[in-house]
Amino acid sequence: MSTAAASRISIERYADLAGIRQVMLDVYADVRHDLIHLPHYSVDSFAERLDRHAAEDGWEVVIGYDGVEPVGYAYGNTVLAGNRWWTRMDEPLPEGFDQVPAVALKELGVRPAWRKTGASLRLHDALLAGRTEPRVTLLVNPKAGDGKVQALYANWGYAPFNHQTPSPGSPALVAMVRAIRSEAF
């Protein structure tokens, strides 16, 4: 597929998991097909995280479709001061860092057939376009794609600021942040 494939993707936005949960699980299984044998990456583990995340404040997902075929998704939720997103960081945060609202990008996944087409950036940007928070934060496995995933986020303007191991069985992750709007920091 070419980068033109991303331009024909339609984006749907949802604030409720009802009706799309199975679509997300199916896409996840395809996205993580090479890792789902590992406990943290199993479909059941993802389903538990998805259900928990969808119940959090400000949860929202965008799903991209090529015709009727789902190609990927991006979802996140609002994190404010005191949220466990901030309290689980390995190093103390700078004074007031968690006082600025942020959207935590919890998952971004694109099915293999649509990778390297621009679909991931399209989904990412569509999710952020609907958000009111001035900045976005995410966690990335620095080993994913031999470091290429973290480098991709850096190309999108993210900068590392901390580390976190969010749950037992999870790999150590790099916490990254970037502005959505100029008043972010």
Rank of each mutant, 00 (worst) to 15 (best):
E91A: 13
L93H: 09
M89G: 13
P92K: 01
R88V: 06
Y73H: 15
A102C: 12
V71P: 12
G82V: 00
N83G: 11
N83P: 00
A102Q: 10
R88E: 14
P92G: 02
P92S: 02
E91L: 09
R84T: 07
A74T: 15
V79T: 05
E95D: 15
D90N: 12
L80P: 01
P101G: 06
G96T: 04
E95W: 04
G76H: 11
W85M: 04
F97A: 14
G76S: 09
N77M: 14
W86L: 07
A74P: 09
D98M: 02
A81I: 00
D90C: 02
G96P: 05
A74L: 03
P94D: 13
T78M: 04
L80D: 07
F97H: 12
M89F: 03
G76L: 05
F97T: 00
W86A: 12
P94A: 11
L93F: 13
F97L: 02
P94R: 03
L93C: 08
A74H: 12
A74V: 10
T78E: 14
L93A: 11
W85D: 14
D98W: 05
G76E: 14
R88T: 06
D98L: 02
D98S: 15
G82K: 04
T87W: 07
P70Y: 15
D90Y: 01
E95Q: 15
A81T: 08
N77K: 08
V71M: 08
A102G: 07
L93R: 05
V71T: 15
Q99V: 01
A74E: 11
T87E: 12
V71R: 06
M89T: 11
T78V: 13
E91T: 07
M89W: 05
Q99K: 11
V79C: 09
W85Q: 09
D90P: 00
W85T: 14
